[in-house]
């Protein structure tokens, strides 16, 4: 068993892959909590596609693809914020227009290059086994920035997610905080892209956070749990990928999905099975109303 666990670690590329996926699991898990609480899954999916022209341009120019993607993501997130300021264009419409346009630009640019199919493939499905030392440093730096800013602005991000009108009346600049959140989200997406690819990146944001939501009612615990579930899914998925030859992105996302499925069924208090049992017990003993809180303290 020990050998089974340690064998992949003797290869440098696997060490890089493990460290990278742990970092990405924690970062995407943490910011993913706010993505699901604010109902921004579509934005997450859109941003992961919208970074494509940045990837292609840096590929053509020969720079670091992650940095190119990050610049594209930041530009697109600011553009989404700017376009959705219009009273006539809803936020999801702005996202739809810009992400499709941006992705189309990337495809057009890519088709002009040789090596088109191979690199599009790694963009779509990730290439975690090609993580270099400098990629690791970049992922670590992004992690420090994203987690640090979430920690510093925890109250503002919480209040804006929960009660935007009160947040505005308390003097918070909603536009500025929304932009900050978009930029953090874009950074988390870009570092995840290399690991799991464009098609599956949404799962790194949404699935661990959704699992954590089933397990706790505390925001703080939800962030910690989501990060842990993201990291554990990454770790298990990578082992599966190594031993079974399944693409790493697919193995990681499937692991996260299985953890979600098990939690959905068996979670204490919120799981489907527990809820069903509770419903039956309540049907038999309707006098036990579990959901109504007393208006007066118990004497």
């Amino acid at each position: 068993m020990i050998n089974w666990l340690t064998e992949p670690w003797q290869f440098t590329f696997m060490q890089h892959a493990f460290l990278a996926i742990l970092l990405v699991g924690v970062i995407a898990g943490a910011i993913g909590v706010f993505v699901i609480l604010r109902g921004l899954s579509f934005l997450g999916d859109a941003l992961s596609h919208a970074v494509f022209p940045g990837v292609v341009i840096t590929f053509i120019l020969g720079g670091n693809v992650v940095i190119g993607a990050m610049i594209a993501a930041i530009i697109i997130s600011i553009l989404i914020g700017a376009v959705s300021q219009s009273d006539r264009i809803k936020n999801d419409t702005a996202i739809g227009v810009l992400f499709a346009g941006s992705f189309a630009l990337g495809v057009a640019l890519m088709s002009l290059q040789s090596g088109y199919v191979r690199d599009l493939n790694s963009f779509l499905f990730g290439s975690i086994l090609g993580v270099s030392r400098s990629d690791l440093w970049l992922t670590g730096a992004v992690g420090v920035i994203v987690l640090g800013l979430i920690l510093i602005f925890r109250r503002e991000i919480t209040l804006i997610s929960f009660d935007r009108v009160f947040a505005r009346s308390a003097g918070l600049n909603l536009w500025l905080y929304d932009q900050l959140f978009l930029v953090l989200l874009a950074m988390a997406i870009v570092i995840s892209l290399q690991m799991v690819g464009n098609v599956l990146v949404l799962a790194m944001l949404v699935t661990p956070a959704a699992t954590a939501r089933l397990l706790t009612d505390s925001l703080r615990r939800m962030v910690v749990l989501s990060s842990c579930i993201g990291a554990i899914s990454g770790l298990i998925g990578l082992y599966i990928s190594y031993y079974q030859g399944v693409p790493s992105g697919a193995a990681i996302v499937l692991t996260a999905t299985v953890i979600f499925g098990l939690t959905f069924l068996f979670a204490p208090r919120t799981g489907a099975i527990f809820t069903r049992v509770r419903y039956r017990m309540h049907r038999d003993h309707p006098e036990d109303d579990l959901d109504v809180l007393p208006d007066q303290p118990a004497s």
Partner: peptide, 23 residues
Amino acid sequence: PQRSDVDWKFPISVLECTLLGLI
């Protein structure tokens, strides 16, 4: 604000919500 302006499914306790008045 009106109660309808708020996401009541948000994972926050009564005490935490009250403390946000000090933001």
